[in-house]
Amino acid sequence: MINKQTIYKRSESRWVDPENEISVSFTDNEANIQQTSWHIWSSNGKWKGNDTLLKVTLPYRWYNKIYIKGFAVVDGWLILDIIEKIDEDNYKVIAGKQGRGFEVYPAPAVITKKDKKWTVKWIKERK
C-alpha cells in the first residue's frame, strides 16, 4: 500500500538499478517516518544513482484508528497518527511530509472530508 499509494520521491534511473526499500514497524510510542538515501554506481562504474529506505514506525492503534476508517493515505501522504478528532469530518493528524530531495518527516496536518473525499492541509509550524 505505501509503495503504490503514496507520492514520496523515489529513486529512478535509466543507467543504475536503484532499490527503494520500505520498512514498517509498530510501537507503543510516537509514530515516525524518515527516508534516507545513499549513492550507488552502475555495474560499469560510470553512472551514479541512489538507493532509498523509507522507514515507517506506526503506533499499534494505527490499524483500528486510521486504516479501518479509510484515511491511511490521504492525497498521497501517509497518515501516521491522529492527534485530535475535531469533528466527524476533521481530524488533526501527524502525516509523513516530503522535504528536500528524498527527505520525509512527520508533520502536523488537518485532514478534512469534503464530498466523500479526504484532503490534507499542512499546519505551518512556528519557529
Rank of each mutant, 00 (worst) to 15 (best):
G70V: 01
N3E: 13
I79E: 05
G101D: 11
N64E: 15
T6Y: 04
I40L: 02
D28H: 13
G70R: 02
A109S: 05
P106A: 06
W77M: 14
S25F: 06
K121T: 15
I86L: 13
W15T: 12
P59D: 06
I40N: 02
D87I: 05
I111W: 01
T36H: 10
Y60F: 14
W122I: 00
F71D: 00
K113A: 02
V120W: 04
I83E: 14
Q5P: 04
T36P: 03
W47E: 14
Q35L: 09
L54M: 11
G45I: 10
V74T: 01
G45L: 11
T27N: 08
I94H: 04
E84H: 02
I82Q: 06
K46L: 11
V120T: 01
S42Q: 09
I2R: 05
G70K: 01
K124N: 11
W122Y: 04
K48I: 11
R61C: 07
G99T: 07
D89R: 14
V24Y: 10
I86K: 12
Y63W: 12
K97I: 03
V56T: 07
K124D: 12
P59I: 05
I7C: 07
I68W: 11
D87V: 05
F102P: 09
K9R: 15
V73P: 02
G76E: 03
R61P: 00
N32Y: 10
E88Q: 12
L54W: 08
N29E: 14
E12S: 10
Q35F: 08
K48S: 13
R14D: 13
I79M: 02
D89H: 11
K121W: 04
K65P: 00
I68T: 09
G99Y: 08
L78D: 00
G76C: 03
N32C: 05
I79S: 01
A107S: 13
H39L: 11
K124W: 07
R100H: 12
